[in-house]
Design a protein around this nucleic acid. Structure first.
Lengths: 117, 117
DNA sequence: CGAGGTGCATCAGTGCCATAATACAGCCAT
DNA sequence: ATGGCTGTATTATGGCACTGATGCACCTCG
Protein backbone atom coordinates (compact mmCIF):
# COMPACT_ATOMS: atom_id res chain seq x y z
CA UNK A 1 0.00 0.00 0.00
CA UNK A 2 2.83 2.29 0.80
CA UNK A 3 5.41 2.67 -1.95
CA UNK A 4 7.89 3.11 0.82
CA UNK A 5 11.03 5.07 1.23
CA UNK A 6 14.07 4.84 -0.98
CA UNK A 7 15.80 2.59 1.54
CA UNK A 8 15.21 -0.40 -0.67
CA UNK A 9 15.43 1.11 -4.14
CA UNK A 10 18.83 2.54 -3.45
CA UNK A 11 21.52 2.34 -6.12
CA UNK A 12 23.74 -0.68 -5.71
CA UNK A 13 26.95 1.26 -5.28
CA UNK A 14 25.42 3.16 -2.37
CA UNK A 15 24.20 0.02 -0.69
CA UNK A 16 27.67 -1.42 -1.04
CA UNK A 17 29.15 1.77 0.34
CA UNK A 18 27.01 1.54 3.48
CA UNK A 19 27.74 -2.10 3.90
CA UNK A 20 31.47 -1.52 3.66
CA UNK A 21 31.33 1.45 6.00
CA UNK A 22 29.55 -0.68 8.57
CA UNK A 23 32.16 -3.41 8.18
CA UNK A 24 34.97 -0.93 8.76
CA UNK A 25 33.34 0.57 11.82
CA UNK A 26 32.61 -2.85 13.27
CA UNK A 27 36.17 -3.95 12.62
CA UNK A 28 35.19 -6.69 10.21
CA UNK A 29 37.50 -4.98 7.81
CA UNK A 30 40.18 -4.27 10.38
CA UNK A 31 42.54 -1.31 10.16
CA UNK A 32 45.61 -2.17 8.20
CA UNK A 33 43.89 -5.14 6.61
CA UNK A 34 43.24 -5.44 2.92
CA UNK A 35 39.64 -5.33 1.87
CA UNK A 36 38.26 -7.70 -0.74
CA UNK A 37 39.32 -7.08 -4.30
CA UNK A 38 36.77 -5.42 -6.52
CA UNK A 39 36.43 -8.61 -8.51
CA UNK A 40 36.02 -10.79 -5.45
CA UNK A 41 33.41 -8.61 -3.80
CA UNK A 42 31.65 -8.20 -7.12
CA UNK A 43 31.38 -11.94 -7.55
CA UNK A 44 30.25 -12.41 -3.97
CA UNK A 45 27.59 -9.72 -4.22
CA UNK A 46 26.52 -10.55 -7.73
CA UNK A 47 27.45 -7.10 -8.92
CA UNK A 48 29.75 -5.61 -11.49
CA UNK A 49 33.39 -4.99 -10.56
CA UNK A 50 33.04 -1.43 -11.76
CA UNK A 51 30.14 -0.87 -9.41
CA UNK A 52 32.20 -2.12 -6.50
CA UNK A 53 35.06 0.09 -7.60
CA UNK A 54 32.69 3.03 -7.55
CA UNK A 55 31.80 2.22 -3.96
CA UNK A 56 35.46 1.89 -2.97
CA UNK A 57 36.30 5.15 -4.68
CA UNK A 58 34.52 7.21 -2.08
CA UNK A 59 36.51 5.81 0.79
CA UNK A 60 39.66 6.40 -1.16
CA UNK A 61 38.71 10.03 -1.77
CA UNK A 62 37.99 10.45 1.92
CA UNK A 63 41.41 9.02 2.78
CA UNK A 64 39.94 6.10 4.70
CA UNK A 65 41.54 3.46 2.52
CA UNK A 66 44.82 3.51 0.64
CA UNK A 67 45.69 1.87 -2.62
CA UNK A 68 48.84 -0.12 -3.09
CA UNK A 69 49.08 -0.38 -6.81
CA UNK A 70 48.94 -3.88 -8.06
CA UNK A 71 48.28 -5.21 -4.58
CA UNK A 72 44.98 -4.04 -3.17
CA UNK A 73 43.23 -1.50 -1.01
CA UNK A 74 44.00 -1.25 2.68
CA UNK A 75 42.08 0.25 5.56
CA UNK A 76 43.95 3.22 6.96
CA UNK A 77 44.81 3.40 10.64
CA UNK A 78 42.19 5.32 12.55
CA UNK A 79 39.69 4.88 9.75
CA UNK A 80 37.07 3.22 11.92
CA UNK A 81 36.89 5.98 14.50
CA UNK A 82 37.09 8.75 11.94
CA UNK A 83 34.39 7.14 9.87
CA UNK A 84 32.15 6.72 12.86
CA UNK A 85 32.64 10.34 13.83
CA UNK A 86 31.76 11.79 10.44
CA UNK A 87 28.85 9.41 9.98
CA UNK A 88 27.52 10.27 13.38
CA UNK A 89 27.70 13.97 12.72
CA UNK A 90 26.12 13.60 9.32
CA UNK A 91 23.35 11.47 10.77
CA UNK A 92 22.54 13.89 13.53
CA UNK A 93 22.60 16.88 11.22
CA UNK A 94 20.73 15.59 8.21
CA UNK A 95 18.68 12.58 9.15
CA UNK A 96 17.73 12.63 12.79
CA UNK A 97 15.69 15.86 12.74
CA UNK A 98 13.46 14.51 9.99
CA UNK A 99 13.10 11.14 11.65
CA UNK A 100 12.38 12.78 14.95
CA UNK A 101 9.58 14.99 13.66
CA UNK A 102 8.16 12.17 11.61
CA UNK A 103 7.96 9.86 14.61
CA UNK A 104 6.36 12.62 16.58
CA UNK A 105 3.72 13.06 13.92
CA UNK A 106 3.05 9.34 13.92
CA UNK A 107 2.73 9.28 17.68
CA UNK A 108 5.86 7.24 18.28
CA UNK A 109 8.39 7.66 21.05
CA UNK A 110 12.02 6.77 20.33
CA UNK A 111 12.78 6.24 23.99
CA UNK A 112 9.99 3.70 24.33
CA UNK A 113 11.00 1.82 21.20
CA UNK A 114 14.55 1.53 22.39
CA UNK A 115 13.56 -1.14 24.86
CA UNK A 116 11.49 -3.24 22.51
CA UNK A 117 14.34 -4.21 20.22
CA UNK B 1 32.88 14.55 2.74
CA UNK B 2 29.87 12.37 3.00
CA UNK B 3 27.75 12.08 -0.14
CA UNK B 4 24.86 11.65 2.19
CA UNK B 5 21.70 9.69 2.14
CA UNK B 6 18.92 10.04 -0.37
CA UNK B 7 17.05 12.36 1.95
CA UNK B 8 18.01 15.30 -0.15
CA UNK B 9 18.22 13.83 -3.61
CA UNK B 10 14.75 12.42 -3.30
CA UNK B 11 12.48 12.66 -6.33
CA UNK B 12 10.24 15.69 -6.19
CA UNK B 13 7.02 13.71 -6.33
CA UNK B 14 8.05 11.74 -3.24
CA UNK B 15 8.94 14.84 -1.32
CA UNK B 16 5.56 16.27 -2.24
CA UNK B 17 3.90 13.03 -1.22
CA UNK B 18 5.43 13.17 2.24
CA UNK B 19 4.58 16.81 2.61
CA UNK B 20 0.96 16.19 1.65
CA UNK B 21 0.69 13.17 3.92
CA UNK B 22 1.97 15.25 6.81
CA UNK B 23 -0.56 17.95 6.02
CA UNK B 24 -3.41 15.43 6.01
CA UNK B 25 -2.34 13.84 9.28
CA UNK B 26 -1.92 17.23 10.90
CA UNK B 27 -5.32 18.31 9.65
CA UNK B 28 -3.97 21.13 7.54
CA UNK B 29 -5.79 19.49 4.69
CA UNK B 30 -8.91 18.70 6.67
CA UNK B 31 -11.13 15.72 5.95
CA UNK B 32 -13.82 16.59 3.45
CA UNK B 33 -11.89 19.60 2.27
CA UNK B 34 -10.56 20.00 -1.23
CA UNK B 35 -6.83 19.96 -1.54
CA UNK B 36 -4.98 22.41 -3.75
CA UNK B 37 -5.31 21.87 -7.48
CA UNK B 38 -2.34 20.29 -9.19
CA UNK B 39 -1.65 23.55 -10.97
CA UNK B 40 -1.91 25.65 -7.83
CA UNK B 41 0.36 23.44 -5.77
CA UNK B 42 2.74 23.14 -8.70
CA UNK B 43 3.02 26.90 -8.97
CA UNK B 44 3.45 27.27 -5.24
CA UNK B 45 6.14 24.61 -5.04
CA UNK B 46 7.86 25.54 -8.27
CA UNK B 47 7.18 22.09 -9.71
CA UNK B 48 5.44 20.68 -12.73
CA UNK B 49 1.69 20.02 -12.50
CA UNK B 50 2.30 16.47 -13.66
CA UNK B 51 4.72 15.88 -10.84
CA UNK B 52 2.14 17.05 -8.34
CA UNK B 53 -0.45 14.85 -10.00
CA UNK B 54 1.87 11.91 -9.58
CA UNK B 55 2.10 12.65 -5.90
CA UNK B 56 -1.69 12.90 -5.60
CA UNK B 57 -2.16 9.66 -7.52
CA UNK B 58 -0.90 7.54 -4.69
CA UNK B 59 -3.40 8.88 -2.22
CA UNK B 60 -6.10 8.30 -4.78
CA UNK B 61 -5.02 4.69 -5.25
CA UNK B 62 -5.03 4.18 -1.50
CA UNK B 63 -8.55 5.59 -1.30
CA UNK B 64 -7.49 8.47 0.92
CA UNK B 65 -8.67 11.13 -1.48
CA UNK B 66 -11.51 11.11 -3.97
CA UNK B 67 -11.68 12.77 -7.34
CA UNK B 68 -14.67 14.74 -8.50
CA UNK B 69 -14.07 15.03 -12.19
CA UNK B 70 -13.64 18.58 -13.35
CA UNK B 71 -13.87 19.83 -9.80
CA UNK B 72 -10.99 18.70 -7.65
CA UNK B 73 -9.69 16.15 -5.19
CA UNK B 74 -11.16 15.82 -1.72
CA UNK B 75 -9.83 14.29 1.45
CA UNK B 76 -11.88 11.26 2.44
CA UNK B 77 -13.39 11.02 5.90
CA UNK B 78 -11.16 9.06 8.24
CA UNK B 79 -8.17 9.57 5.97
CA UNK B 80 -6.02 11.19 8.63
CA UNK B 81 -6.26 8.37 11.14
CA UNK B 82 -5.99 5.66 8.51
CA UNK B 83 -2.98 7.35 7.00
CA UNK B 84 -1.28 7.68 10.31
CA UNK B 85 -1.89 4.04 11.10
CA UNK B 86 -0.46 2.69 7.87
CA UNK B 87 2.48 5.08 7.95
CA UNK B 88 3.24 4.10 11.49
CA UNK B 89 3.18 0.43 10.71
CA UNK B 90 5.27 0.88 7.60
CA UNK B 91 7.78 2.96 9.51
CA UNK B 92 8.17 0.45 12.28
CA UNK B 93 8.46 -2.47 9.92
CA UNK B 94 10.77 -1.09 7.26
CA UNK B 95 12.63 1.88 8.57
CA UNK B 96 13.04 1.70 12.30
CA UNK B 97 15.08 -1.52 12.45
CA UNK B 98 17.66 -0.07 10.08
CA UNK B 99 17.76 3.24 11.89
CA UNK B 100 18.02 1.50 15.21
CA UNK B 101 20.97 -0.65 14.25
CA UNK B 102 22.65 2.23 12.51
CA UNK B 103 22.42 4.43 15.59
CA UNK B 104 23.72 1.60 17.69
CA UNK B 105 26.71 1.25 15.42
CA UNK B 106 27.37 4.98 15.63
CA UNK B 107 27.15 4.92 19.39
CA UNK B 108 23.95 6.94 19.59
CA UNK B 109 21.08 6.44 21.98
CA UNK B 110 17.58 7.35 20.78
CA UNK B 111 16.34 7.78 24.30
CA UNK B 112 19.01 10.34 25.09
CA UNK B 113 18.45 12.28 21.88
CA UNK B 114 14.76 12.53 22.57
CA UNK B 115 15.40 15.14 25.22
CA UNK B 116 17.76 17.30 23.23
CA UNK B 117 15.25 18.31 20.59
C1' DC C 1 -23.66 28.77 -24.17
C1' DG C 2 -18.97 30.12 -23.15
C1' DA C 3 -15.06 30.97 -20.00
C1' DG C 4 -12.16 29.21 -16.68
C1' DG C 5 -11.40 25.88 -13.46
C1' DT C 6 -10.56 20.76 -12.56
C1' DG C 7 -7.82 15.96 -13.32
C1' DC C 8 -5.70 13.02 -16.75
C1' DA C 9 -3.60 10.74 -20.92
C1' DT C 10 -0.06 10.81 -24.38
C1' DC C 11 4.38 11.59 -26.19
C1' DA C 12 9.05 13.04 -25.77
C1' DG C 13 13.36 14.29 -23.62
C1' DT C 14 16.96 13.82 -20.12
C1' DG C 15 20.05 11.96 -16.93
C1' DC C 16 21.61 8.47 -13.77
C1' DC C 17 22.58 3.74 -12.93
C1' DA C 18 24.29 -0.64 -14.00
C1' DT C 19 26.41 -3.63 -17.06
C1' DA C 20 29.69 -5.24 -20.46
C1' DA C 21 34.04 -6.01 -23.04
C1' DT C 22 38.67 -4.73 -23.24
C1' DA C 23 42.99 -3.01 -22.25
C1' DC C 24 46.60 -1.26 -19.37
C1' DA C 25 49.99 -0.59 -15.39
C1' DG C 26 51.76 -2.35 -11.33
C1' DC C 27 53.12 -5.97 -7.79
C1' DC C 28 54.24 -10.66 -6.15
C1' DA C 29 55.16 -15.59 -5.62
C1' DT C 30 56.68 -19.36 -8.06
C1' DA D 1 60.94 -13.86 -16.00
C1' DT D 2 56.22 -15.30 -16.20
C1' DG D 3 51.56 -16.04 -14.81
C1' DG D 4 48.23 -14.37 -11.89
C1' DC D 5 46.65 -11.22 -8.98
C1' DT D 6 45.70 -6.20 -7.90
C1' DG D 7 43.13 -1.33 -9.25
C1' DT D 8 41.95 1.70 -13.17
C1' DA D 9 40.63 3.83 -17.76
C1' DT D 10 38.02 3.65 -21.83
C1' DT D 11 33.96 3.18 -24.55
C1' DA D 12 29.42 1.60 -25.50
C1' DT D 13 24.84 0.10 -24.40
C1' DG D 14 20.39 -0.83 -22.22
C1' DG D 15 17.12 0.31 -18.86
C1' DC D 16 14.62 3.03 -15.87
C1' DA D 17 12.87 6.94 -13.23
C1' DC D 18 11.98 11.73 -13.29
C1' DT D 19 10.52 15.74 -15.51
C1' DG D 20 8.37 18.35 -18.96
C1' DA D 21 4.92 20.31 -22.80
C1' DT D 22 0.60 19.80 -25.03
C1' DG D 23 -4.03 18.68 -25.60
C1' DC D 24 -8.42 16.60 -24.12
C1' DA D 25 -12.68 15.52 -21.28
C1' DC D 26 -15.14 17.06 -17.58
C1' DC D 27 -17.51 20.21 -14.31
C1' DT D 28 -19.24 24.78 -12.44
C1' DC D 29 -20.61 29.39 -12.62
C1' DG D 30 -22.28 33.57 -14.77
Amino acid sequence: MNPNRPSNNRPVYLKLRDQIAAAIIDGIYAEGAMLPSVRALAAEQGANPLTVAKAYQQFQNDGLVEVQRGVGMYVVRGAAERLRATERESFLREEWPEIRSRMERLGLDPAALTLTS
